[in-house]
């Protein structure tokens, strides 16, 4: 019996007990995850809550890696710990880290009712699940991962065949979310100076005139009207730069000319 066939038989047998190493890591990181999740809920400072959330996300990435999901483990760290947590911290800094919770209850008995709900929910869930899984066994993902030569390849085959339409729809959802965030977070600035104001401010500065010695022809506009002719190098007005409807002589016509103020 070769080593490969031994491995195949071992993979086909249902897993009723995990390896001792996985059990140790599960109990250790499970405790860490619960403590960090409690930290998210009970931390007074919102930044501390975000850092506790990082702990939860990293322990979950380890859980995914232990359960034959290396792709999801990588995505968990890249998307959650990398992108979403950065977004959370960014918005926290934008909104202000001192926006802590008020301790006044707006609903009477709110906290007590929440505590009762949480305790009863966790008792029911853990009791029901614990009762249901006493003799549970795992098939394992060794054969499923071997279909296309690896976890990532098998996932890609599923995403681009069976789940192709959900994948397309979800990509559209991402684009809509990005556009929606831009529309929501965008703010029209009203205190910005207009273009003529910027131009006047630029030419009001003394250093420009002193650097040139005198006003450069055609540059130092005395007004921003379209009827104002440009200046020629000699200082004369170039009436060809103004439309005849505005008093200039553009297009070869010789209309009456506006004098320099």
């Amino acid at each position: 019996m070769t080593a490969a066939s031994v491995a195949a038989v071992a993979a086909a047998a249902p897993i009723t007990h995990t390896r001792p190493g996985e059990s140790a890591v599960f109990y250790l990181l499970g405790a860490v995850a619960i403590v960090a999740a409690l930290g998210v809920v009970f931390a007074k400072n919102a930044v501390h809550a975000a850092l506790a959330l990082v702990g939860v996300l990293f322990t979950f990435a380890v859980f995914y890696a232990m359960q034959d999901a290396p792709f999801l483990a990588a995505v968990q760290i890249i998307v959650y710990a990398g992108a979403i947590l950065m977004l959370f911290l960014f918005v926290l800094m934008l909104v202000g880290v001192d926006s802590s919770d008020s301790l006044v209850e707006t609903l009477r008995g709110h906290r007590i009712a929440t505590g009762v709900f949480g305790l009863s929910f966790v008792v029911i869930m853990v009791g029901a699940i614990g009762h249901a899984i006493t003799h549970a066994s795992a098939v394992g993902l060794t054969s499923a991962n071997a279909v296309a030569g690896g976890n990532v390849q098998s996932l890609a085959r599923l995403i681009f065949t069976t789940y192709f339409w959900p994948f397309e729809v979800i990509s559209a959802l991402l684009i809509v979310a990005a556009v929606g965030a831009m529309v929501l977070a965008h703010r029209e600035r009203t205190d910005r100076p207009s273009q003529p104001e910027l131009m006047r401010e630029r030419y009001r500065r003394e250093d420009l005139v002193s650097a040139l010695g005198h006003s450069a022809p055609g540059v130092f506009a005395l007004g921003d009207s379209a009827a104002r002719p440009a200046l020629l190098p000699g200082g004369a007005e170039d009436l060809d730069s103004v439309y005849p409807e505005l008093g200039g002589s553009a297009h070869g016509s010789s209309a009456p000319q506006e004098s320099t103020p």
Binding site: A37, M125, I129, A136
Partner: peptide
């Protein structure tokens, strides 16, 4: 360890 213990942790 039962491999389904992750479900209990997820519920908590």
């Amino acid at each position: 360890m039962n491999p389904a213990n992750y479900l209990v942790l997820a519920a908590v």
